[in-house]
Computed example of a mutant assay.
Amino acid sequence: MAQAPDPVTCPKPECPAADAQCPLIAELTQLRQLARTDGLTQLFNQRHFRDALAQEMERTQRSYNPTSLMFIDLDFFKKVNDTHGHEAGNAALVHLAQLLKDNLRMLDVAARYGGEEFVVILPGTDLFTGRFVAERLRKKIESSPVPLPTGPLVITASIGIDTYRHTDTDSAETFIARTDKLVYKAKAQGRNCVVHGVADLRTEAQISADEKAALSDAFRSDDK
């Protein structure tokens, strides 16, 4: 009787998928991160922003929780480059990116949209709260000069903010377009201001002290 052949033993893979230290997995993770990250500011890039916005708008349709979108555009950025040089302009962009990281929630999505324009997705955020956040960021930008070798550089930003609700029929592109237009209105109104979309906003008088405290606690401290 012929002897049964020895079972074939497959060699153990050098890089098993379950191995968290796998160099191949680490490399793929790094490439994936690079594909969705802006090289200068280390914020998300426009590609990732568009994917994230579509996802949040879909979530709004399912959950009825609104999604707010903010456009932030640095004022007189060309003048900064012309007067102080492009390195100073880059420093201003990096500085603004850090302010966004330090003053937003972990669930918010901040991205560089292009040039000196940034976007922030605020999931589960109505227009009243979004307007509060936008104004807080505007003040933070104005009061936080960019440190340059030649001295501190004061920068300001024009901000537009609008909200997508479950009753809205906008596509992601139309939502982006109508929010971006609000930035142009802010520029026309003198810059360094916030312009918001049309909605039935509650007035300050209707907001209780507890609600105001909750809004402040939802975002990080100004002391950062």
Rank of each mutant, 00 (worst) to 15 (best):
Q55Y: 14
S158M: 10
L122K: 01
S143V: 08
F49P: 07
K140Y: 05
T60W: 05
Y64S: 15
L53T: 03
G114S: 08
L53P: 03
F49C: 11
G114P: 11
V146Y: 01
Q98I: 04
K79I: 09
S158C: 10
E58G: 14
V154E: 08
Y164Q: 13
I159W: 06
L127F: 07
D108Y: 06
V133W: 02
K140H: 11
T60V: 14
D102I: 00
S63I: 07
V120H: 03
L127E: 04
T156I: 10
Y164I: 15
I159Q: 06
M70H: 03
R112N: 08
A157D: 00
D82V: 02
M106P: 02
T125L: 08
V119D: 04
Q98K: 12
D82Q: 04
R59N: 14
F118V: 03
L148S: 04
E87Y: 09
D108F: 07
T60R: 12
N81H: 11
A97N: 04
K101M: 11
P147S: 09
L127A: 09
E142V: 09
Q55D: 15
I159M: 07
T67I: 10
E117A: 13
F77R: 07
A91P: 03
I155D: 02
F49K: 08
P66S: 15
T67Q: 07
S63R: 11
V94G: 14
L96F: 01
P147M: 10
G89R: 01
Q61R: 15
D102T: 00
L137I: 03
F71S: 02
A110S: 15
K78C: 10
N103G: 07
G151D: 00
L100P: 11
R138D: 11
H86G: 11
T150V: 12
Y113P: 01
G151H: 00
T83W: 01
A88M: 02
T156Q: 08
F76I: 07
Q55N: 14
L127W: 05
T150M: 14
A92P: 00
A110H: 08
K79P: 02
P149T: 07
Q55K: 15
G160S: 10
R62W: 04
Q98E: 15
A134G: 12
D75Y: 14
D102S: 05
K101W: 03
A54M: 10
D102W: 01
T125W: 06
M106F: 07
A91T: 02
R131N: 13
S68C: 13
V133F: 05
L53K: 02
D75T: 13
P149E: 06
N90S: 12
I72R: 05
K140F: 05
P147W: 09
V154N: 10
R138T: 12
G130W: 10
T83K: 05
D126E: 12
L96Q: 00
D126W: 05
S68K: 13
Q98F: 03
I159G: 08
V120Y: 01
K78A: 09
K140E: 09
G89C: 08
F128T: 15
S143A: 14
R136K: 15
F132E: 12
R50A: 07
V80H: 02
A97R: 02
G130C: 13
A54R: 13
S68H: 11
E56H: 14
M57D: 03
P123A: 09
G160L: 11
P147F: 09
A92I: 01
I141P: 00
D108I: 10
S158D: 09
V94F: 08
